[in-house]
Each structure stands twice: as structure tokens, then as C-alpha cells.
Design a protein around this nucleic acid. Sequence first.
RNA 1: GUGGGUGUAGCUCAGCUGGCAGAGCACUGGGUUGUGAUCCCAGGUGUCGCGGGUUCAAGUCCCGUCACUCACCCCA
Length: 420
Amino acid sequence: MTTFQAPKGVPDYIPPTSASFAKVRETLLEAARLAGYGYVELPVFEDTALFARGVGESTDVVTKEMYTFTDRGDRSLTLRPEGTAGVMRAVIEHGLDRGQLPVKLAYAGQFFRAEQPQAGRYRQFHQVGIEAVGVDDPAVDAEAIAVADAGFRALGLTGYRLELTSLGDATCRPEYREKLQAFLAKLPLDEDTRRRAELNPLRVLDDKRPEVRELVADAPLMVDHLSDSARAHYDQVKGYLADLGVKFVENPRMVRGLDYYTKTCFEFVHDGLGAQSGIGGGGRYDGLMEQLGGQPLSGVGFGLGVDRALLACGVEGITPGDETRCDVYGVPLGEVAKSRLVGLSAPLRAAGVRFDLAYGGKGLKGAMKGADKSGAKFALVLGERDIEAGVAQLKDLATGEQRPVPLADVVPAVLEALAR
RNA sequence: GUGGGUGUAGCUCAGCUGGCAGAGCACUGGGUUGUGAUCCCAGGUGUCGCGGGUUCAAGUCCCGUCACUCACCCCA
């Protein structure tokens, strides 16, 4: 008999922690909803070319981390490695950008990258993201950042920081890139790093090795070579963040793995998570929509890691979700009582009470144990004696106090007890 | 793809220089024929990841392999 296990790098979320997982996703999404972002539900697979063109042909994500397959019609499809490209596709396909701008959309779901798994890095992971498309206004950049920050704060997280920088625009970025490459070319770098300098020179600035850090200590930085308009944009973002009361630190050496980012770029970093410390990140993208066949409109957005935010909660001792299974747990003594409790489950649940009962013919002791394990506040005990008296016993499991309530009034009695 | 670490009960793990496979938790029953969480008693479970080798004897030593895990890389 062969047994199965989940595919490599794919987490299962099971009770009780799954309640917190769902709560994290919901909380982050709620922050977006409060800022006027409409929910979109998009496919988990798309035309492979969408990601190749959107994310960037030379990125690691596209060259070696995509789950790509051919369907029966010989179409090349790819499990989405990120969210922005799919949202842009939907915006263009449905003409959402023909109405009032910006178009503000939020999403939540699974994403897939065929990486080597490690702490906080999965092959299937979950993100909550937003995109605001069509207006190149620094206030929208600041809003996006504030939404992410509000989501993390709503979870109770405090041990993270927001890092901010500007990647420049279509005029100053290429100029800076050449300047940086010229600088790097003169350094005694190893083979791998030299290749990286060719492909993505910014990445070399972010190298973790002390000897490389020393070499690039005097490297030119993008923020010192911004065009006048990019400079102004960046300054205004910082101004609006001050208005919003969002604290940040500037990190001019920040690197993003997706090619489409321009101007504002940010990352939320949590120090308790080990090597994979980014719990969210995003930025503005000027050329993406046009690249994908739409109007030349700019957008800004982020992706927040649900898995990592949950890990961060664990590190900070936060339990976001209600990990109890029910509010009231029925304990029947005998068949008649069981039938009565089964009958009560429908009206109790209809009244919004989470109700479960002991199945399987357990004895009183076992049933009470079940009540305890379920996390219920109250046990509803019912036996022959009670039925004869026309009552059920409502027991407060925290205090141990028990009192009879008329069988006809169980629902209001339970509601009243729970409200206290 | 490249390194390091770890694989023993459902879970967390102990098991010394090779010598009868263990603990805690969890689960079930009982102490209490109508009361959980506390306490006491009882009970069961193992291809010691898998395959080979050394040995009178391997969970333990050697080789291989697979899985998990951490890190590089990369990113949420």
C-alpha cells in the first residue's frame, strides 16, 4: 500500500491553525476593501506568454521557476507565479480602464513557483494583493503602502519595517544602469557575480557577502540619479506617507525580482522569519500595461504573503483567528436525548450559534471531554431526567456552573448566555 | 541547481563506546451506573525512512538512496 504526501514545498493548513490562516487572508483583504478596492477572482493559470512578457523574460521567476504545461489544445499555460500580470490582463480584456480612473482591484489566492522550499518559501503560496491602475499620482502609491501597513497592523503585527526607494523612470533608469554597470565592470568580481552585473546590476548592490558589500560601498545609487520628475514623484510619496502616518526607512539598495517596477518600490520586512524575511512588497509599474497590449497607463500595487504574515504572527505570539470549533456542544444521554439535540442543532445554527454534539454513542465522560476539546463555552447536557422535567442543562465550561433551561427556550437562553 | 542538518509510536523527542525499542503528550477504558479541563489506575500501536554492507549481534558503524529541513540563489 503506497501512501501519499503533499507535493514538495506545498503546505497544508489544518485545524486549529487553519482558522488563523483564513483570518490573516481576510484581514489583509479587508484593509484593501476599506480603501475602495473591488474584489477580483482570477484564474490560477494563464497564457504562458502573459507572464513571460509581463514579469520579464530574463527574470529568475520566468526562466526557472514557472509551472508550465501544455493543455490538450496544445496551448502553453502556466500556473500564476504572481498576481499583477493577470490583473492587467483582466483590466485590458474587460476594458475596465475605459471608465473612471484609477481602477482599484484586490485579490487573494494561490501562486506557484518551482523553487527549492525553505522556511517561509513554498512552491504554492498565498498572497493578498491590490492594483490601482490608470493614474500616475504619488498619493496612490502612498495609499497602496498604507493599505498594506494597515493590514499588517490590523493583525497586531509590530515587528516589521517598511523599506522604500525609487527605481527611477524610463529616462533616468537606463542611464543609471549604464553608470552602475561601468562601475561594476572595474571591480574584481567572481564569475557568477559578473554575470549578475550584466543581467541585473542592481542585485549586486544587495549582495549579502561582506567582501562584496565593501566593494560596492561607493557604487552610484539610483536615488542620487533620478530624473526631475521621478525625484518629485518620490518626494511626494514620502510626503503623503507622512500625511498617512506611515513610518518607513529608505533602502536605496532594495532589489525586486520582477522587471516591471518603476519609480516607487517598497518592501515590508520582518526580522523574525529567517532568510525569507519579506512579508510583502510592491511598487509602481509604468510600462506594464502597454507591454501587455493595453493603453500606456501606469499602475501601482503590492503582493502580501499570507503564509509569511501568519508565520510572523506566530513569532510575535499572535493568534489571529478563533481556533475554537464551536460555541455550544451537545451532550446527549441516550437515544431520545440524542434525537432532541439533533433536532435543536438546526434552530441553534440558524440563530448563528456554532453547535456541535457528541456523536458515536460516547459515554457522558467522553462526551464532556469532547465538549472541552471543541473549545465551546457551554455544554448542553440532556438526559431522560431532564426531558421528563422539560429542561436541558446549560453548563458553563469555564466556571463549571450549570443551570436548567426550559427545552422550549433553549435558543434564546443560549443566545443570552453567549452574549454575556 | 549547490551545500549543511535531521529521519525512532498519531505528535514532540530520548536511546551512551553495537547487546530484549522507550518517555511525555494525544487516544480509549476505569476510579465517579449524570459531568469536561485537574488527579489516580489500566490499555494499544513501530518495516527504527528505504536498500545493501560489516558483525555472533545494527536504531546505533559503513556505502547508497529517498524524504524532510535550514541556508545559498531567489522572493511573498
